[in-house]
Amino acid sequence: MRHILLLSLLLSSAGLRLSAHHSFAAEYDGLKPVTVTGTVAQLDWRNPHAYIYLDVKNESGAVKSVIVEGHPPNILRRTGWGKDIIKVGESITVEGWASKDGSNRMAGRQVTLPGGNKLYWGPPSQ
């Protein structure tokens, strides 16, 4: 935890020093945290972002697709991911933030894998 705090501090002070594909706030609302559990329908392992397409059941049993944006594949590979870590049909839980455009997209931060392990999928909301 201490390390994560330290990293957050350093990143928040990084300001204009670092350059990512787009700013978080351009698409997502850091004040609207979202947690969803669903079944992996598709894993899109491409640039500039990897996406998990998740089938999420609501209380009435209807299935809604949620698109979870994450880091690009190169960063995911360096933070412990591989293409086979999650498979289509498996159940996972994703924590992140809602999109600003009201669509079914979200910024994924952390994924809880079927075995209970957690991996970061995307950046913090900054």
Partner: peptide, 30 residues
């Protein structure tokens, strides 16, 4: 900037930003 060596034995990997760029159509201008 201070540049550092990467902590593990890394290779420069391929990226093709344009292959699936969904962002422009979902960005909300401030």
């Amino acid at each position: 900037l201070i540049l550092r060596h990467t902590p593990r034995d890394e290779r420069i990997m391929e990226t093709d930003c344009a292959e699936n760029n969904q962002d422009p159509q979902h960005i909300i201008p401030a």
